[in-house]
Design a protein around this nucleic acid. Structure first.
Length: 806
RNA sequence: GCGGUCGUGGCGGAAUGGCAUACGCGCUAGCUUGAGGUGCUAGUACUCGACAAGGGUGUGCGGGUUCAAGUCCCGCCGACCGCACCA
């Protein structure tokens, strides 16, 4: 009797589908549990083993929750707008919607091949008008609440995608997706005011259970800092405002720096003695790509603004002003007071330009290096601040600035508003009309969904206009406000739009009257457990938290946070620990593995491969171990004694396995859960097995390898589906054996083990230990001064001489 | 530089402060097989010792706490991930 995985897997996948065993039942008598995996982008490459890891892990969780009696929501869908599809469509002259349809069909067949327990009755697709209608609706609501606005500003422009990128999509100065150079372009863009939520996005991290690294990364990205705005008078009459986190060092500000993009550079042009030189510097900075501007930790450059000076409000002294690209226009006020004694960048700049370095916080040697410690220093050379600690001096200086009307305490964030426009075809049209008289006017809600028009060409344009702009009969419309002629917005939304709320649509996927029914949202939100990739920490995860908070504010949902628990899986690497990629030719397709070994083997291996949270290298050898294990499980069919009871010989270890497998699943320790099941099977081979033992094994193994378990369940004559069995309970009292082998140490060193009854009393353990000849030998005649006994674990004997430190 | 994670056999990796290396891969030997890219059994950290009995040493390095440290504390070294001229 062979283990024919192919036949078994097809058989049970068909039966599960027929019986609808994975449907979310909505039974109000049950507690709900919402398990979520990140929905895939259906690329033409198909499912990757990298998808299989999180999907399998969460499938195990969902399956266990069903067995535990929860009403489980475990849905799947498609994040289908996006550039690769559009580019493929352009190259092959197929409509992107058709490409998407084909890719989804392929992906879906692969997902089903793995035996995942998704409820397909709730499938969502971000490119479906019935879905993006509500994405557009949320945009209109954001607009209504002043959280969407159009602004002309320098944006990140990918030279290859011919499209604007969000800050989060620019990695090391190049496009996150295609790796091409990103340059700055001045463009009018739709922006979402995520900065309005910066503080809440930061604070509410305390409400959720995320891995520390995820929270840290988000905090870092939000980048809150506390300081002060300070106004400096200048010799031209203008006031130059700076932001500083070190107002305590104001007396040490010996010069100022403004960003090349600072408006004063332009405004002062005619007043400067070296206007041309400054303009040239500014021009050079503008031409540099982000990559050039940030990549090199180069020497500081800059130009002094000759003819203008500022007055340090604390000292009253005149100080020079420079323009330099180490000051960013996008943070603070785009201008800084430079304190070379206590800031490394200012110190480096001062060295290049021979500027004075004044020590105002004692504790270091400012001629050698900037002294930046804020914990130990004491203020000097600082008038009324002298003698104060840094912390006190900050507060005192802010009081003084407020008194004099020169400044105030300010909190700043690194987080920038979200650039929300894309100049591409395959995205949600932004439902806005531009009227020469009324400006940007929201499209009426009744118009939604505002459908993507059929266009002849999806080619991006070099001018930076969306391909939609060429569709004149679509573009030309009327203003909803004044009725005059108007044009439609031709930019589309970024791919992150549809994925910012998809978890809500799963709850109520067919609702034509609302994005999600309130009562249903109340039942299923928040997502109880959301697993996804680390690469989305500052993109999707942050964006969707923002949207969800907004939907909370307007009463659509009732939980402040969308995800109660977030976990992250490590990457699956190729054999040598290298990233899997087509160019390296080391990509493993799940199909290869399923064809050769079966889905159950694939599922086991992808979880057994290593620590779920860490990167792991694929090993073709090790896959076989998992197949071998299933063969051994299968082999138990012919060995099982007819008794339906758990055999006394295995009772304790089965109860321990129930506990361990359950706990391990909760803690993402899928590898050790499987190891425990392997150990159990090994014991069954050593000491015999009954039908009852096997029954227990199958219920525990079924979340991991559901097909083989279902088949064996049937062959053993059990009724129904094993995947619908209740998760077994363990009895703590039954997890212990009658006897325990305890370690016997002498002076902390292991000398022997003895077998004594479980829970034996101290004296009994001591007697057993002393009766051991090897212990007597180790004691070598010395008296036992004292001993430490840990029940069922060990006994440590301290001999008299040991205590003297010998 | 800042933030985070982490250093354990030949390899992937296990260990609520309590017998380090579970489980799997690989390897070695024996059996099985017509054959094996099959299956089974046994072995597999290093070292002294006779490949025995029996010792000793071992979780990146150096200290410390403790009856007991891979685990806790301090200081180094190294790796990986994220951010990075954010004032």
């Amino acid at each position: 009797m062979q283990y024919d995985s192919q036949k078994i897997e097809q058989k049970w996948q068909a039966r599960w589908a027929r019986e609808g065993v994975y449907r979310t039942d909505g039974d109000a008598g049950k507690e709900k549990y919402y398990v979520l995996v990140e929905f895939p982008y259906p690329s033409g490459n198909g499912l990757h083993v990298g998808h299989a890891r999180p999907y399998t892990a969460m499938d195990v969780v969902a399956r266990r929750r069903r067995m535990q009696g929860f009403d489980v929501l475990f849905p799947m869908g498609w994040d289908a707008f996006g550039l690769p599809t559009e580019n493929y469509a352009i190259a092959n002259k197929i409509h992107p919607a058709e490409v998407t349809r084909r890719n989804i069909a392929f992906f879906k067949s692969q997902i089903n091949m793995m035996g995942y327990s998704f409820d397909w009755g709730r499938e969502v697709n971000t490119t479906d008008p019935g879905y993006y209608r509500w994405t557009q609706w949320i945009f209109l609501k954001l607009l209504e609440h002043g959280l969407a606005y159009k602004a002309r500003m320098p944006v990140n422009w990918c030279t290859s995608c011919k499209c604007v990128l969000a800050n989060e999509e620019v990695v090391d100065g190049v496009c996150e997706r295609c790796g091409s150079e990103v340059v700055r372009r001045e463009k009018s863009q739709w922006m979402l005011k995520i900065t309005a939520y910066a503080q809440r996005l930061l604070d509410d991290l305390d409400l959720v259970e995320y891995p520390e690294r995820v929270k840290a990364q988000q905090r870092n990205w939000i980048g809150r800092s506390e300081g002060a705005d300070v106004d400096f008078a200048t010799t031209t009459g203008e006031t130059l405002r700076v932001y500083t986190t070190r107002p305590d060092t104001l007396f040490g500000a010996t010069y100022m720096v403004i960003s090349p993009e600072h408006p004063y550079v332009e405004a002062w042009r005619d007043k400067l003695e070296n206007g041309d030189e400054v303009a040239a510097y500014r021009g050079a900075a503008a031409r540099k790509s982000d990559f050039e501007r940030t990549e090199l930790q180069k020497e500081k450059t800059g130009v002094r603004l000759a003819g203008v000076e500022a007055i340090n409000p604390a000292t009253g002294g005149r100080i020079p002003i420079f323009v330099s690209d180490y000051v960013l226009m996008s943070y603070g006020t785009g201008a800084i007071m430079a304190v070379p004694g206590h800031d490394e960048r200012d110190w480096a700049f001062a060295r290049v330009f021979g500027l004075p370095i004044v020590e105002v916080v004692a504790g270091g040697d400012v001629q050698t290096a900037a002294f930046t410690d804020v914990e130990t220093g004491t203020l000097i050379n600082s008038g009324f601040l002298n003698g104060l600690e840094v912390r006190q001096a900050k507060a005192r200086m802010i009081e003084w600035l407020v008194e004099k009307g020169l400044g105030r305490a300010v909190t700043n964030f690194k987080l920038r508003d979200w650039v929300f426009s894309r100049q591409r075809y395959w995205g949600e049209p932004i439902p806005v009309r531009h009227c020469p008289a009324c400006g940007a006017v929201p499209a009426p809600e009744s118009e939604l969904p505002l459908l993507l028009p059929e266009v002849a060409s999806y080619e991006p344009t070099d001018t930076g206009e969306s391909p939609l702009s060429k569709m004149r009969d679509w573009v030309e419309t009327v203003c909803p406000r004044c009725g005059g002629p108007a044009e439609r917005e031709t930019d589309t939304m970024p791919q992150w739009a549809g994925s910012s709320w998809y978890f809500l649509r799963y709850i109520d996927p067919a609702n034509g009257a609302a994005a999600v029914d309130k009562a249903l949202a109340r039942r299923y939100m928040p997502v109880d457990w959301y697993n996804g990739g680390m690469e989305h920490t500052t993109l999707h995860l942050l964006y969707s938290r923002f949207w969800h908070k907004f939907l909370y504010d307007i009463g659509v949902v009732e939980t402040p946070e969308p995800y109660a628990r977030r976990t992250s899986h490590g990457m699956i690497l190729g054999e040598g620990g290298e990233k899997m990629s087509k160019s390296r030719g080391n990509v493993i397709s799940p199909n290869e593995i399923v064809d050769r070994y079966g889905a159950d083997t694939m599922r086991l291996y992808i979880l057994f491969i290593g620590d779920f949270e860490k990167a792991a290298s694929w090993s073709p050898q090790a896959v076989k171990g998992c197949r071998r294990f299933l063969e051994r499980v299968w082999g138990l069919l012919t060995r099982a004694a007819p008794s339906g009871e758990i055999s006394p010989a295995h009772e304790a270890e089965i109860h321990r396995a129930i506990r361990k497998v359950g706990e391990d699943i909760e803690h993402l320790k899928f590898n050790t859960a499987i190891a425990a099941l392997m150990a159990l099977v090994n014991r069954f081979y050593e000491a015999g097995v009954t039908k009852g033992d096997l029954r227990a094994l199958l219920t525990l193994l079924s979340p991991f390898a559901p097909h083989i378990c279902e088949e064996m369940w049937e062959r053993l004559g059990y009724r129904g589906f094993v995947v619908r069995e209740p998760w077994p309970a363990y009895d703590r009292a039954k997890t212990v054996e009658d006897t325990a082998e305890i370690a016997v140490q002498v002076g902390g060193k292991l000398r022997a083990t003895v077998v004594i009854p479980t829970g034996a009393a101290d004296e009994e353990a001591l007697a057993a230990a002393l009766a051991e000849p090897r212990i007597q030998k180790a004691l070598d005649g010395r008296r036992v001064a004292r001993h430490i006994y840990v029940k069922d674990k060990l006994i440590n004997l301290i001999a008299e001489k040991d205590r003297q430190g010998g």
